[in-house]
Amino acid sequence: MKNIKRFFSSLVIASAMVLSTIGINVAYAYPTEPIQLVVPFKPGGGADRTFRLFAPYLSEELGVPVNVVNIAGGGGWVAWAQAVKWDAEKDDHKLQVVNLPHVLSMLDPRMKRTETLEDFNFLAWHSLDPCIWAVREGDERFQSLAEFLDYVAKNPNEVIISSTAVGSDDHMGIAFAEKNIPDFKVRKIYANGDSKKIQEVLAGTSDAVAGNVGYYVPQFMEGKLRPIAVLSAERSPNLPSVPTFAEVTGLMNISYAGRTLATAPGLSEEKRTILLDAIKRALANPEYVMKEMNNKNPLMFKEGDELWATLRSSKAMVEKVKFWEMEE
């Protein structure tokens, strides 16, 4: 009888000890299980590639495995609609990739989305690839943005530009020019990826292409295409000799493809800080930086107010261009 009592009391003590260490773990050790890094597109795309590259470095910082999970569909919204509803306790081991300007399709009234930017718990900016305009190397009509704009003004509706679909960053830059330069009248053909655009401009189906620096650097190095303008506030370190749109025209035409990371809304400050610090350190890992340099994906870390300022200016740009009102 005594033995049984002693057995139970020691059991109680033991379990209390075990429980208390778990308690300590919860308070001080986070993360305790693998992190899910949700990419809102199919495996194999640009975002997928970048975050599959990133995952091992983030894992090194956090001390737990980081698994890339693809939740594709709805132009990203199948995943994003879930991420804004994540629970701060249950979904505290999840990170969501949020792409700009894709997520701003929420502003298009035709999409009938109810989410706002503020619904996301943005942690950090991860990478930012500015838009560029390029023409064929050696095209006698234009080899610079000034010549290009001049030619377009003199020959309205003659020049054809290859762009990604309406609402994309590439289209936004063209829409901005259409809205702000009175005699900028061009024809546009759309694609859902850069392959088709490159094929069109190389073959002469179109005269110019709107794309992102990263994807087009190989074409520039090959000497097939020539960049005529970067659509950002400052020149791109990858293309230091190419002027910005603003330098030539005085118009701040800024458009880019950006990737940010968000976490569960309302996540505790401790956990948020642990995640943010790990992302920050992983983004500075020289080995990772080297790989993304090869991948031509320009990394850019931003947090807090700086992050939100960029998000809001991106939103303001889309609201100003109102691309959904421009097409018939």
Binding site: A81, S105, M111, V166, E327
Partner: peptide, 14 residues
Amino acid sequence: QYSGFPRFTFDFVG
């Protein structure tokens, strides 16, 4: 992709 208009989606995200 030419207008950004959701065609025949019946507001179904899928």
